[in-house]
Amino acid sequence: MTGELEMEDEGDVAVTVPERWQLRLYVAGMTPKSLTAFANLRRICDEHLEGKYSIEVIDLMVSPQLAKGDQILAIPTLVRRLPEPVKKIIGDLSDTDRVLVGLDIRPLG
């Protein structure tokens, strides 16, 4: 809710933001860090992008060849594929404020 409001506050940018958020979370096995990251992501999305997002979880242990495509180094990495431009957020997403900034859901400050 607040997300939408704040996005509108951004004026022009808010208008161009598409309805669909395509997110991809790269993990390497079901490690505690991966699980924390996934839980944090779900929580943030549910709070700010309810119904407008899709999350794809890629386990590099299973398909290592996918690491090259998105230039994944750190685990876990969250990639915002849509809306453009592509954004990358690394870490277990425990710092909610930074995640919001990173995803352009909320401007810094």
Partner: peptide, 17 residues
């Protein structure tokens, strides 16, 4: 500039790659 750091991470992705 494309990377935002939020909490704990490691470089397992690089290793896997």
């Amino acid at each position: 500039s494309e990377i935002e750091e939020t909490g704990e991470y490691d470089l397992e992705g690089l290793f896997i790659r």
